[in-house]
């Protein structure tokens, strides 16, 4: 009996060990590239087969900021992301409301049409966008690049918001009005707080999508609208690996910040529901 238990215990431990090993591998697989870029962006005289840079410096960041004009590029990126997020959210709120809460004939067809720009290869889609934008003089304008981004940002927003609104319980809103709240107060005290996490996560997703977007920007940007991903790509072409790494780090920081925000702000269990027995 005892040997059996020990055997099972060992098996269980082995299972645990296996799980942890797997987790560690996964962790390394995800983080090592970041680590390489991080070291590269701070290291000096790091050549050949050395695993660790011999000296550290902040020079590459200074270079990146002055030579590649980071403030301007970052501003472009943020302005474009800002416009893209605003337009996407403005489109997605009514669309998501209609798709989530109304009976609409052909809902599935509408939904897959909305998701189409995400399904086809971005480069093919971007080519078509570029052709239209040349004719409309939208190439190399913030609004133009942002509109191109909306095509892939809005589907995310609509997807997130329609399920947020779908989960909003009509009877909770009715309860508010029976309690004496008029439409405006119901909206501010009940509806808005309940859908806010959904809207926030939609904004975060669309922001990161636009912020990281490369293909669509590549086909629509110009000298005045270079964004960080495109600038990083160009820096690779210029051959300064250290500067490129520094740029990549600058590119990563806001993404990490957003990830942190998601962890803090968006608590899905707070979204809607959480009732027992319903």
């Amino acid at each position: 009996m005892r040997t059996l238990r020990q055997y099972l215990q060992a098996l269980l431990n082995a299972k645990k060990l296996l799980a942890y090993t797997f987790l560690l591998c996964f962790f390394l697989w995800v983080t090592t590239p970041f680590l390489m870029i991080l070291l590269k962006s701070f290291g000096r005289n790091w050549f050949g087969k050395l695993w660790f840079p011999p000296e550290f410096t902040l020079d590459w960041y200074k270079w990146a900021i002055t030579v590649t004009n980071v403030p301007e590029v970052l501003r472009n990126t943020l302005v474009i992301a800002g416009i893209a997020v605003t337009i996407s959210t403005l489109i997605a709120i009514p669309t998501g409301w209609a798709l989530g809460r109304r009976q609409i004939p052909g809902k599935e067809v509408i939904m897959s049409t909305i998701l189409l720009p995400r399904m086809i290869p971005p480069i093919a889609y971007a080519l078509g966008v570029a052709q239209i934008f040349y004719r409309l003089h939208l190439i190399d304008t913030h609004i133009g690049v942002a509109i191109a981004h909306v095509a892939i940002c809005a589907p995310y927003a609509i997807l997130v918001l329609s399920s947020t609104f779908e989960g909003l319980d009509e009877r909770v809103l009715e309860a508010a009005s029976v309690c004496g709240a008029n439409n405006l107060r119901t909206f501010f005290h009940v509806t808005l707080p309940l859908v806010m996490p959904g809207i926030l996560s939609s904004i975060i997703f669309t922001f990161t999508t636009s912020y990281n977007e490369f293909t669509l920007t590549l086909m629509t940007y110009g000298p005045k609208t270079i964004t960080l991903p495109v600038r990083t790509y160009l820096a690779v072409g210029e051959g300064y690996w250290e500067v490129t790494s520094a740029l990549s780090m600058i590119l990563i920081i806001p993404s990490l910040f957003v990830l942190f925000m998601i962890q803090r702000q968006v608590q899905p269990e707070k979204l809607v529901g959480g009732f027992k027995g319903v």
């Binding site: 009877r171 909770v172 009715e174 309860a175 029976v178 005290h189 309940l194 707070k270 009732f275």
Partner: peptide, 29 residues
């Protein structure tokens, strides 16, 4: 309209405000 009829109502699915505490729920009216 409903909100001016001065009613109290109990719902089948409870219809409590999930983002409010028990105190805030009862305080709402």
């Amino acid at each position: 309209p409903t909100h001016r009829r001065e009613l109290g109502m109990v719902f089948q699915n409870f219809a409590l405000f999930p983002h409010m505490t028990v105190f805030e729920n009862v305080e709402f009216p």
